[in-house]
Structure formats: structure tokens, C-alpha cells
Simulated scan of single mutants.
Amino acid sequence: MSKTVNLIKLSVGTEDVAGLAAWQATRRAQSDDGYPQHVTRMWPKRESEILNGGSIYWVIKGVILARQEIVRLDEYNSADGIRRCAIVCDNPLIRVAATPRRAFQGWRYLTPEDAPIDLPEGRDDEEPLPAALSEALAAIGVR
């Protein structure tokens, strides 16, 4: 049985999940198959684990707020001739329990055990808790 691993990525310049959705709508319009993609410099070494049901978790303003299932990883040749990785995501953004996360560069692996839980249906429009409160709750094991 293959393991699954997720990616976690900062959504730089995004104010909220709606802003990420709007940015991705423009990316979908530019794609051949209607899936949004995020181009990154490095190719994940754990590709088979990512493609075994992994998602990309989006950090917005220091808090993980949403995820998307990863459909595939495509080779992307940029104008500068450098081979890059296009992380192709499924269309719906799935809201998750707000979880604080410090800034980092690039992307990181995120185990399923450390990933925030999906919000139940009907809670998509809730405002996230303040970062300090969310961090204090996470410290005592409440998500």
C-alpha cells in the first residue's frame, strides 16, 4: 500500500480564500483542460506519494485556510529555458480548519496526520479565528 503525502504552499499576495479562487479562475482560463495550476521551481521527489491522493494546502496570511486535491504534476518549460513543475489542482477549493503556519519559501511536504481537517459543509463562509486564538487552540490539541 502506497503512502500519501500532501504539499503546503504560501498563497503570496492573497488576502483570503475568495482572492485565491479569483486568481485561480484566471489560471483556469489560461489552461488547456480547465484545471488551475501553480508553477514552481522544484519538482517534488515524492511524486508518487503526492499523486496517491495528496492535496496542496494553501497558507493565506499565516494561516492554512484551504486545500485542493492534486490531479497531476506536469513539466513546464519557462521562457528562460528552465524546466519547472506545474502542480495541477482540482477545481474546488476545500475550506479547512484555520491552522496557523509560519512563513517559509517554496513548498513543504505535509503528512496527512499533520494536515488540518476539512470544515463541514455549510461552514465554508465562516471567518477564521484570530491567529493567536487558533494557535493557542492548536497548542492544546483543539482544531
Results as ranks from 00 to 15, higher is better:
residue 43 W to G: 00
residue 42 M to N: 12
residue 6 N to D: 10
residue 94 I to M: 09
residue 102 R to F: 05
residue 22 A to N: 13
residue 117 I to D: 15
residue 28 R to F: 05
residue 97 A to H: 11
residue 38 H to M: 10
residue 116 P to C: 06
residue 77 N to Q: 11
residue 98 A to T: 03
residue 11 S to Q: 14
residue 28 R to Y: 05
residue 113 E to T: 08
residue 10 L to E: 15
residue 56 I to V: 15
residue 100 P to K: 08
residue 58 W to C: 01
residue 14 T to R: 14
residue 108 R to E: 15
residue 113 E to M: 05
residue 125 D to Q: 06
residue 101 R to G: 00
residue 110 L to R: 01
residue 75 E to L: 02
residue 4 T to V: 13
residue 87 I to R: 00
residue 51 L to W: 09
residue 15 E to F: 02
residue 120 P to Y: 10
residue 108 R to L: 14
residue 25 A to E: 15
residue 97 A to N: 03
residue 84 R to P: 04
residue 67 R to P: 02
residue 68 Q to E: 13
residue 54 G to K: 01
residue 109 Y to R: 04
residue 109 Y to Q: 07
residue 73 L to P: 01
residue 93 L to W: 12
residue 24 Q to R: 14
residue 24 Q to F: 13
residue 30 Q to A: 15
residue 5 V to K: 00
residue 129 L to E: 14
residue 54 G to E: 02
residue 83 R to W: 02
residue 49 E to G: 06
residue 62 G to V: 08
residue 92 P to H: 07
residue 8 I to H: 00
residue 120 P to I: 12
residue 18 A to I: 07
residue 127 E to Q: 09
residue 120 P to M: 10
residue 78 S to L: 05
residue 15 E to K: 13
residue 88 V to I: 10
residue 101 R to C: 13
residue 69 E to N: 10
residue 56 I to C: 13
residue 76 Y to Q: 06
residue 85 C to A: 11
residue 5 V to M: 04
residue 90 D to K: 12
residue 60 I to C: 05
residue 84 R to D: 04
residue 66 A to M: 07
residue 57 Y to S: 06
residue 103 A to Y: 15
residue 33 D to T: 10
residue 37 Q to I: 01
residue 84 R to H: 14
residue 37 Q to A: 12
residue 87 I to A: 01
residue 85 C to M: 06
residue 100 P to E: 10
residue 56 I to F: 02
residue 120 P to V: 10
residue 22 A to F: 05
residue 106 G to W: 03
residue 10 L to V: 12
residue 39 V to N: 07
residue 92 P to A: 05
residue 96 V to I: 07
residue 22 A to M: 09
residue 63 V to A: 01
residue 97 A to C: 03
residue 68 Q to R: 11
residue 55 S to D: 09
residue 85 C to G: 03
residue 68 Q to H: 09
residue 103 A to S: 13
residue 53 G to S: 12
residue 103 A to N: 14
residue 53 G to V: 11
residue 49 E to K: 10
residue 118 D to Q: 13
residue 28 R to C: 12
residue 84 R to S: 03
residue 16 D to E: 13
residue 90 D to E: 14
residue 127 E to Y: 03
residue 59 V to W: 00
residue 32 D to M: 09
residue 99 T to C: 12
residue 99 T to Q: 13
residue 23 W to H: 07
residue 101 R to M: 14
residue 112 P to K: 04
residue 125 D to T: 08
residue 111 T to M: 01
residue 126 E to R: 07
residue 41 R to S: 10
residue 27 R to E: 07
residue 122 G to C: 06
residue 63 V to T: 14
residue 102 R to S: 13
residue 42 M to L: 10
residue 45 K to S: 13
residue 51 L to Q: 04
residue 27 R to S: 05
residue 117 I to P: 02
residue 47 E to T: 14
residue 46 R to N: 08
residue 83 R to I: 09
residue 66 A to H: 07
residue 61 K to S: 11
residue 71 V to C: 00
residue 30 Q to G: 09
residue 62 G to K: 08
residue 88 V to L: 04
residue 103 A to G: 11
residue 43 W to S: 01
residue 64 I to P: 00
residue 128 P to S: 11
residue 116 P to H: 06
residue 28 R to V: 13
residue 62 G to I: 09
residue 22 A to P: 00
residue 98 A to M: 04
residue 103 A to T: 15
residue 15 E to H: 07
residue 68 Q to L: 08
residue 60 I to W: 02
residue 129 L to N: 06
residue 54 G to T: 03
residue 119 L to A: 01
residue 129 L to H: 10
residue 112 P to M: 09
residue 63 V to Y: 01
residue 79 A to Y: 09
residue 64 I to G: 00
residue 81 G to C: 08
residue 63 V to K: 09
residue 7 L to H: 03
residue 95 R to D: 09
